[in-house]
Write a protein that binds this DNA or RNA. Structure first.
Length: 1091
RNA sequence: GGGCGAUUAACUCAGUUGGUUAGAGUGCCAUCCUUACAAGAUGGAAGUCACAGGUUCGAGUCCUGUAUCGCCCACCA
């Protein structure tokens, strides 16, 4: 068997074998179990716009790590997978491709066809995303995968919208949107870019009017870069404390262009005394700030005047200018103002202008009807949830972003002018100029609702009151009056599951449903409870039957396998898994998503969606830019998995997930010819094909050039591509390989292993030491994971496995492992009565525990090794408690299982059958009894001594093959420890420990060192130069003197001695004693050398 | 403009409530294919802890200011 284990870990083999193994055994499945506590993580749903990048890999690694860890601790650990339809982003991607490949716009093919195309896109990318997640090892309950537009989520959206509408939380309002006059659509803020363009800055004046509305000689001047908007001015505005204009506030001015009279108002937010003339014109329909000013001063000025048609030409509100393009109007207006005597001056100026990312044309601010959610009360509750610590942020500081944003309580605009998304379930129902129903309307309505209509009386009541608000479970409505057309209409919100009503409306009135869709965040806000089946309280949510799940679960639903479930009526899944445990996300969506999930969770469920929010760092490239596909620095996790293995990737990522900093990840291209790494430059990122030739990257090693992965164009499939990787991941890969080889060594040496109890007396010094360290590191890792400090946890584990287990323990047990069975009883020269069997048992215990500790970080390799270990050692000394080892968050005082057993002796390691798979093995506990700090200190001394000897070898450049004699002068207790491990001196440092004890003297021609409590001498006749050694020792003495001086200075400083804590002072004194000893021995050596 | 964060070795980052001589990985130099591992072993060189003040017996750590960088929000007639 040992020969079967390859010398290098081959990640692809383990990954291909163990993921299907886990999934087919149903290990990822999480079903309610009243005997166990739940641990729930809802994935921050990735967009179906494209493949995942490193940010997702980081996010996913952390969640999987937590899920696997909690599962091992005995929780029913649910990690809920799924994807987001991501309205704007996805529609834009599909539209762009359609335009590029077929030169079609969405208007060419229509709403239904476009949506069908996007669904196809979604299917493709969802598959790809899930594939990536599985490659990473994601132990989601894949039977529960959800999509924000699927039936379950759609129902939750409909129910929530209806509920909010009925509760009066949803209202129709005006809002200025970024209007793309070319595409004739509203564009989101993040699809708009700003560019500086050459423009003009005009100053005009309006004449102040007298009481009769006649222009006077007095003028008020203002500046603008968009004179055409003067046609839509509804006021001019000054600062309330501006003395130049105090007397004018409340008076009127006349717009010479159309003779309209508008008021002079005062508004401290809009007007700035120090800018321009201090006076500003106000055009609420075409400027966001002016619009905000209007909302503050509605009663003083008229309603906003919209001047634009959707195509960017001026409408009838512009009078004689109607039908002209906005730039033509600009010229005409300037001319008209000159003629009217209102022109003062013009200057050139660069103006930041917004452009649509998609059409590259200038954006016009455009007033439009939108739907809003009132945030007032909802926000207050969500704020309280964090202030009361019902939801806690890790790291804590991120609570600020959340609170600051919510406390503004800005209403949430939830409508989007798109086709891809949840269509707003509101039908606008025309009533006419009178707020009552015509006979014709009434007939239509009766046909829809039936003659015994439950709605009519209420509708009429509402109409009479000219306000909306009446409702029942099926229908809710508001009544609105359009000032422009002078018509009344009823806004009907049809509840979920009311297909008949919808059909009826359509039959009588045509398609009156609001054409807009909901903001993507509206559905993702519901994710934590929608995925669990809310609002259906009667049934568990449906599950997807994957192939693996089907073959594994013999087709029977979870309820049949778990009788406890079958007995429960209602939605046990929702009951059991809500609220969730922790949300893992990056900081940029704290407001957009986290805040809204808390808000809707409280609104729909009456409880927060999760207890903890862990905010992890962002991944940046080597230039400090965020990673994204469009920047050309979005590394595909699959490329990294291929090169470094999923575990290597995961371990590295976890090591980067600290609390303070974002992660910089310098990117390289991997040469497809020779595998060399070529650092990526900004030029690489930006390069675009020139004259049909695609940029190439040249490998400095093999001198060949190749095309590379780029954001700007697709690579040719016909030739190899240099993929983006980062050598940082060698860290994790190398660690995995080290672990692999350590376990390989163990497995080879476990030949002939027999299970059996280990008695206290059979434990060698190094056994006790490694068990003590193991106990310490287990405790440390558990504590760190509890605090989401993954970087520190990986560091602790790596250091333990590599620098303690491999470098010291494995080296030290080699002599015992080499013992052949027959000579076991009497091994000459072995310090410990070293029974090979006992050594194997301790080794198996340590390896077993290491694999379990590492499993959440590196699941594939640990599973692989676990299975191999199970073959050779199916029963092994268990250090785990047979009981569930869940630590409750609330009952800190509850005794841990091992505490309840009192204080067992060291020799209580008795064999138990190992778990069938590492993924379901229990998280290590019960090691506490092995902790022995005094022993660890003694061992440290030993390590220091070996280190000092190795140092001499290095300094004198002595061949590793040469065996050195070592003499050590030390106290008897140190000598006793040394005697115990004398044999290992050979293994560890290629030395022979000739003598140790208080009476050891320095042999002539020795190199020496002093550690204070021990001095070491290595005779190096012929190998050292007396003068060189003297110089080295003198340098050493000088260094020690420096330290001593520093310490003495402190101790003679009375304020230090008086004010510093006693233990600090004592520490300095102790160190000083050691330093003086060191100095004395060093000086002694110097003297012997004739110095 | 407001908020949050960062600045420590050539690179990427740790550094607990202030307390001996500031650490790791990578890279670099030297020696070594020692029967688990060259994706390895042993040793070494490498730091004015961004800058300037302050608090303190004592500051990488706390405070103030400056500079640079990043992110979020607001705004730019």
């Amino acid at each position: 068997m040992p020969t079967e284990i390859p010398k290098q870990y081959v990640p692809s083999a383990a990954e291909a074998q163990w993921f299907p193994f886990w999934e087919s055994h149903g290990y990822f499945n999480a079903d309610p179990d009243p005997q166990k506590p739940p641990h729930v993580i809802m994935i921050p749903l990735p967009n179906v716009t494209g493949a995942l990048h490193m940010g997702h890999a980081l996010n996913g690694t952390i969640q999987d790590l937590l899920t696997r860890w909690r599962r091992m601790q005995g929780y029913v650990a649910l990690w809920m997978p799924g994807t987001d339809h991501a309205g704007i982003a996805t529609q834009a991607v599909v539209e762009r491709r359609m335009k590029e490949q077929e030169n079609l716009t969405r208007h060419d093919i229509g709403r239904e066809a476009l949506v069908a195309r996007i669904w196809k896109w979604k299917d493709e990318y969802e598959k790809r995303i899930i594939g990536q997640q599985k490659k990473l090892g994601a132990s989601c309950d894949w039977r529960r995968v959800r999509f924000t537009l699927d039936e379950v989520c759609s129902k939750a959206v409909r129910r929530t919208f209806f509920k909010m509408f009925r509760d009066g939380l949803i209202y129709r309002g005006k809002r200025l949107v970024n209007w793309d006059t070319f595409l004739q659509t509203a564009v989101a803020d993040d699809e708009v870019y700003t560019e500086d363009v050459a423009g003009k800055f005009w100053t005009f004046s309006y004449p102040v009017a007298d009481a009769n509305g006649q222009p006077t000689d007095r003028k008020i001047s203002f500046s603008t870069t968009r004179p055409e908007t003067m046609l839509g001015d509804t006021a001019v505005c000054v600062h309330p404390t501006d003395e130049r204009y105090l007397d004018l506030i409340g008076k009127q001015v006349q717009i010479p262009l159309n003779g309209r009279l508008i008021p002079i108002i005062a508004d401290a937010l809009l007007a700035d005394k120090d800018l321009g003339t201090g006076c500003v014109k106000v055009t609420p329909a075409h400027d966001p700030n002016d619009y905000a000013c209007w909302t503050r001063n509605k009663e003083k000025m008229g309603d906003p005047i919209n001047l634009l048609n959707p195509d960017g030409t001026f409408n009838e509100n512009a009078g004689p200018y109607a039908g002209l393009d906005r730039l033509a109007v600009r010229e005409a207006v300037v001319t008209a103002m000159e003629q009217a005597g209102g022109f003062e001056k013009v200057e050139d100026r660069t103006i930041p202008l917004k452009f649509s990312d998609r059409s590259k044309t200038a954006i016009e601010p455009y007033l439009s009807d939108q739907w809003f959610v009132k945030m007032d009360e909802l926000a207050t509750k969500a704020v309280d949830a964090v202030k009361n610590r019902d939801v806690e942020f890790f790291p804590e500081r991120y609570a600020n972003s959340y609170l600051d944003w919510l406390e503004e309580k800005r209403d949430w605009c939830i409508s989007r002018q798109l086709w891809w998304g949840h269509r707003i379930p509101v039908w606008t129902f025309p009533i006419g100029p009178n707020p009552s129903l015509s006979d014709e309307l009434e007939e239509k309505i009766n046909r829809i609702f039936g003659s015994d209509s439950f709605v009519m009386p209420e509708l009429q009541k509402a109409l009479a009151a000219r306000m909306g608000g009446a409702s029942d479970d099926k229908l809710a409505f508001q009544v609105s009056f359009n000032e422009v057309t002078g018509d009344w209409s009823a806004l009907m919100c049809i509840g979920p599951d009311q297909e008949q009503l919808e059909q009826g409306f359509k039959a009588e009135f045509g398609d009156l449903q609001d054409p807009d869709v909901l903001d993507t965040w509206f559905s993702s806000a519901l994710w934590p409870h929608a995925t669990l089946g809310w609002p259906d309280l009667e049934h568990n949510p449906p599950m997807v039957e994957s192939e693996q799940a089907r073959s594994a679960s013999d087709g029977s639903p979870a309820e049949e396998k778990n009788p406890a479930l079958a007995l429960r009526a209602g939605n046990a899944v929702l009951d059991y898994f809500y609220p969730g445990s922790v949300l893992v996300t990056s900081r940029d969506i704290i407001t957009l998503w986290v805040a809204r999930m808390v808000l809707t969770g409280l609104y729909n469920m009456g409880d927060v969606p999760f207890k903890h929010v862990h905010v992890h760092p962002k991944i940046l490239d080597g230039f400090g830019q965020g990673m994204s596909k469009s920047k050309g620095n979005g590394v595909d996790p699959l490329d990294l998995i291929e090169k470094y293995g999923a575990d290597g990737l995961r371990f590295t990522i976890a090591s980067l997930a600290g609390e303070t900093q974002d992660v910089r990840l310098p990117i390289s291209y991997a040469c497809p010819h020779c595998d060399a790494l070529i650092p990526q430059t900004l030029e690489h990122q930006k390069a675009k094909p020139k004259e049909g030739k695609k940029p190439r990257v040249k490998c400095p090693k093999c001198k060949k050039d190749s095309q590379y992965t780029s954001a700007n164009y697709d690579a040719d499939v016909s030739e190899p591509v240099a993929s983006m990787v980062s050598e940082r991941f060698e860290y994790g890969r190398n660690f995995c390989n080290k672990l692999w080889n350590a376990c390989r060594f163990a497995l080879i040496n476990l030949e002939g292993y027999t299970p059996g109890a280990i008695a206290d007396a059979d434990l060698a010094l190094e056994d006790r030491w490694i068990l003590s360290r193991l106990a310490t590191v287990t405790d440390e890792v558990t504590r760190l994971l509890d605090k989401y400090q993954f970087d520190q946890a990986t560091r602790a584990l790596r250091e333990f496995v590599w620098n303690e287990f491999c470098d010291w323990y494995l080296e030290m047990i080699k002599p015992r492992l080499r013992v052949v069975e027959s000579s076991e009883e009497n091994i000459p020269g072995t310090a410990v009565p070293g029974l090979r069997a006992n050594c194997q048992r301790v080794l198996v215990t340590v390896v077993d525990t290491i694999l379990r500790l590492l499993h959440p970080f590196t699941p594939f390799i640990t599973e692989d090794l676990w299975q191999r270990l199970n073959e050779i050692a199916p029963e092994r000394p268990g250090v785990e408690s047979p009981e569930s080892n869940i630590q409750s968050d609330t009952t800190d005082d509850a005794p841990m299982p091992w505490e309840a057993q009192g204080s067992p002796s060291l020799g209580s390691l008795t064999p138990q059958p190992a778990a069938a798979a590492c993924i379901i093995a229990s998280w290590p506990t019960g090691l506490e009894r092995f902790r022995d700090p005094a022993l660890e200190t003694r061992f440290q001394r030993l390590q220091d001594l070996i280190g000092a000897v190795r140092n001499l070898r290095g300094v004198y450049n002595i061949s590793p093959a040469a065996i050195l004699d070592v003499y050590i002068r030390c106290q008897p207790d140190v000598a006793a420890d040394l005697d115990v491990v004398a044999e290992q001196f050979g293994t560890l440092a290629k030395n022979r420990l000739v003598a140790c004890g208080p009476d050891v003297a320095r042999p002539p021609a020795s190199a020496s060192f002093s550690l204070g409590e021990a001095d070491g001498y290595v005779p190096l006749e012929g190998l050292i130069d007396r003068t060189a050694e003297l110089a080295r020792q003198q340098k050493e003495a000088e260094k020690i003197r420096g330290f001593i001086a520093g310490h003495e200075k402190k101790l003679t400083n009375t304020s230090f001695v008086e004010r510093a804590p006693a233990e600090v002072v004592q520490e300095i004194r102790d160190t000083l004693v050691t330093l003086n000893k060191q100095l004395a021995s060093t000086e002694d050596v110097i003297q012997q050398l004739g110095g």
